[in-house]
């Protein structure tokens, strides 16, 4: 059994559309997206959030979002598993790696619908293969975040905070 972990799931901020001939991986944050990521950082600071490790997807919009949040993290790590649907292997690798590295506060910066699926899976234990069961409140807005706590295993975490854009704005303004 692994230790309880504070897990933040963060969706990348607003990104521009792909230009003709450009890959989805190369989509950068818009100026509004950069401002949104900075706002999220301020909001997370207000909540006293800090991370032993911040994992991010290799896609540029997640890399840029993670870069804005990096001052809150002791270490960062690129994680290809965040750029695809989360499966049992991703979860078990993450859980064992987090236990091995004694990470107590972890942030994952990635994409929808996968982060929402992951949150739903961790909270409910229901399969991510059944997205129709996923309630809307677990879908993350761009530049939004969820805080979960518990063991990194299906059905072993509980949702503590859901930061939508309004909440982020309110927290950042305070």
């Amino acid at each position: 059994m692994t230790e309880a972990v504070e897990l933040w799931l963060v969706r990348h901020a607003e990104a521009r559309d792909a230009r003709p001939g450009e890959s989805d991986a190369a989509r950068a944050l818009t100026e509004r997206g950069v401002r949104g990521a900075r706002r999220l950082r301020r909001a997370l600071r207000r909540l006293g959030a800090s991370f032993d490790r911040l994992d991010h997807s290799p896609l540029l919009r997640a890399v840029e979002t993670a870069d804005v949040l990096a001052p809150l993290a002791s270490a960062t790590r690129v994680n290809a598993g965040l750029a695809r649907e989360p499966g049992p292997e991703f979860l078990s690798d993450l859980a064992s790696e987090v236990a091995r590295s004694h990470v107590a506060r972890l942030a994952l910066v990635g994409h929808e619908p996968w982060l929402g699926q992951l949150a739903f899976w961790l909270v409910s234990g229901w399969s991510v293969r059944e997205p129709a069961r996923q309630p809307a409140w677990l879908a993350l807005e761009k530049g939004g975040a969820l805080r979960l706590r518990g063991e990194i295993a299906p059905g072993r975490m509980r949702l503590e905070h859901a930061l939508d854009s309004e909440t982020v704005r309110a927290l950042a303004r305070r």
Binding site: A28, P58, L59, L60, V63, R77, V78, N79, A80, G81
Partner: peptide, 15 residues
Amino acid sequence: DERFAALLAALAELP
């Protein structure tokens, strides 16, 4: 390790 491939992929997109 997948981390090496992911690192290369991420670097390839940086401005």
